[in-house]
């Protein structure tokens, strides 16, 4: 093995070259970023434009993906099925759902009542749970980050996309229920839960209020699912965990002995949308719900951020 000697010498030569070039690199300061830097107004505007472009790309991806379209399809069909079922079964005006037969507008409230515990969380949980873990699983996350999308920026835009989807999902439920209700049932002034009656126009306004409150609740769930999504590289794991948490929370909620933890559960505030069906609107109840949603968004968002900005991307 006498070849080792001369080879070793060759290597020490190259090590010398290396030391030299690192000394050379200690030259003048790097080019200034001023002008187009993130601090200048022009740079900030360009940054916002670029953010909007990536968000549009996210939204386009979400709403073009066959799986998500199927989910939205289900969201649109469920109110239709409820409407047809009530129409077929005839009246039963004593129950809340039964009121639908007398007034098509009530179908919207009935749809949210039926879909908020599980169907809407399923759709939002799938999209939000997939948001980071899905990219990691595909391997596209490493290419987004080397593009470079920026970790905090990507996470923020991913969450913005989840919020857009949550709003779209709730709007879709509202519109589908409204159209079904208008087609299948008579429409008129709405009798509220508190017994008083409001005119049709205000009824429509209340529907908007319900949809927005539901969207806020789903946005909070989306933050939770996003945080879980940063913990794994398999989207199905993140989605399943989210949905299991939703179900478990509602089971706990149903146990009277555990009433003490109920206010801390995200799911127990979703039903608060019925505050919009009282006269006057139960702003305290709904406001408290919105505060809980905001708290969930802040806490889960922080967890997601802490995890995602420090994580090694090895997939």
């Amino acid at each position: 093995m006498s070849k080792v000697g001369p080879l070793g010498e060759g290597l020490s030569v190259s090590a010398g070259v290396q030391a030299d070039s690192s000394a050379v690199s200690a030259g003048p300061r790097a080019r200034s970023l001023s002008g187009d830097g993130p601090e200048s107004p022009r740079g900030a505007l360009a940054g916002v434009r670029a953010g909007v472009r990536l968000l549009r790309s996210e939204i386009g991806l979400t709403f073009r993906r066959p799986r998500n379209l199927a989910l939205l399809g289900v969201l649109a069909v469920v109110p239709l099925v409820i409407g047809v079922a009530i129409r077929a079964a005839g009246d039963g005006a004593d129950s809340f759902v039964g009121q639908v037969a007398g007034n098509g507008l009530v179908l919207t409230f009935a749809a949210f009542f039926v879909m908020l515990p599980l169907v809407l969380p399923l759709a939002v949980g799938v999209v939000a749970g997939d948001s980071i873990a899905g990219e990691a699983g595909l391997g596209t996350l490493r290419y987004l980050l080397t593009a470079p999308a920026g970790r905090t920026r990507l996470l923020a835009l991913k969450y913005a996309n989840v919020v857009v989807f949550a709003v779209a999902a709730c709007a879709l439920v509202a519109v589908s229920a409204l159209v079904t209700g208008l087609v299948l049932f008579p429409v008129g002034p709405v009798t509220l839960l508190s017994g008083s009656t409001i005119p049709l126009a205000e009824g429509l306004l209340r529907i908007g209020l319900v949809a927005l409150y539901a969207a806020a609740g789903m946005a909070a769930l989306g933050a939770l699912a996003l945080a879980i999504s940063t913990l794994t590289e398999t989207s199905i794991g993140a989605i399943a965990t989210t949905l299991v948490l939703v179900v478990v929370a509602q089971v706990l909620q149903a146990i009277p002995q555990l009433a003490v933890i109920e206010p801390y559960l995200l799911t127990s505030w979703w039903a608060g949308f019925d505050g919009a069906l009282r006269d006057p609107v139960a702003t305290d109840q709904m406001g408290q719900g919105l505060l809980v949603f905001a708290a969930y968004i802040v806490v889960c968002g922080s967890i997601a951020w802490a995890r995602f900005t420090s994580r090694d991307i090895t997939a």
């Binding site: 472009r53 990536l54 391997g139 290419y143 987004l144 080397t146 593009a147 470079p148 999308a149 920026g150």
Partner: peptide, 30 residues
């Protein structure tokens, strides 16, 4: 950068995949 093999969105076309990654680069001109 090409790191550990290709990774793209299977349901998008080749061109749409490239547009997607271009959109992630804040300095790319749309």
């Amino acid at each position: 950068a090409l790191v550990e093999g290709p990774a793209f969105y299977p349901y998008l076309s080749g061109a749409a995949n490239l547009r997607r990654f271009d959109a992630a680069d804040p300095s790319a001109d749309p």
